[in-house]
Design a protein around this nucleic acid. Structure first.
Lengths: 138, 138
DNA sequence: ATAGAACTTCAAGTCAACTTGAGGTCAAGC
DNA sequence: GCTTGACCTCAAGTTGACTTGAAGTTCTAT
């Protein structure tokens, strides 16, 4: 397929596809003249990337999940990511409950509502810093 | 409390607290000389902000949830955010299932495993663009 | 009263993830 | 044969969310 077809099928602009290729997240299967050719399986891969992004993983993290560096490395990593997701799902669930309550509750100030505060506190238990500033290249 | 105490209690650096104040996400209750004073409820608010961030909401969106613009506006907004979260929770759940499967499955290439591909396709149904580039200020 | 720590402002820098733009190539249709 | 449109590269720009740095101020202890 050529890049426009991939763009169409994946919903991503061509510029993003080139960018992803540059980052090693996808590969073109060859060239016809200058033009990239992609094989159809790139679509699955892009779906997975989009999914990962929307799950809050960085492109670098997603890249790690793919790399066939060793035989067993990936499995451990994938498990770890799955655990991260589990934590996140729990957080989001409490946040959703909090929001639903706040939307329904008649207290003028939600910060005065004990139910809301309790949810908040529970949710705050496993707080974590956002990933974007965790890495500091020496 | 002074800014260092808030930083300590919230786990956020003082620079972030100033930044959030500038953005209107939190307020200092006054000054002692130059120094900001915060009342204790800012901690709850920061917890909620952190939670929202980790749920993938932008600071602007979080700000909207707080603003006491009108009497009923917020409730609809909060409901909508809760719906967003529900969608996201479902996505994350399929992604987690996909990862767990990929970690367990013995197929050499996960893209060849029908189970994995099915999960991927299901999850891809309600795909959406990441929020950061949706707004274009005219 | 003087050093030092802890705060302040404001401007500029950083990082990820893209997007945009300028300038070039190439096959296809008129 | 020449324009047009879809592609290409490479550099620079953008956005959101902060962080860092310089330069000044003030509390706190010696």
């Amino acid at each position: 397929m050529d890049i426009a077809e991939v763009a169409e099928a994946s919903g991503l602009p061509a510029s993003t596809l080139r960018f992803y290729e540059e980052k090693g997240l996808i590969q073109s299967s060859g060239r016809s003249g200058l033009r990239r050719l992609f094989s159809a399986n790139v679509i699955e891969r892009l779906a997975l990337i989009s999914l990962g992004r929307s799950a809050g993983f960085s492109l670098a993290e997603i890249g790690e999940m793919f790399t066939p560096e060793g035989p067993e490395i990936n499995r451990a990593l994938l498990s770890a990511k799955a655990d991260d997701l589990d934590k996140k799902i729990k957080e989001l669930t409490s946040m959703r409950n909090g929001l639903r309550h706040a939307a329904a509750c008649r207290a003028s100030n939600h910060f005065e509502c004990p139910k809301f505060l309790r949810l908040l506190r529970v949710a705050g238990k496993n707080r974590f810093r956002q990933p974007n500033k965790l890495k500091k290249k020496t």
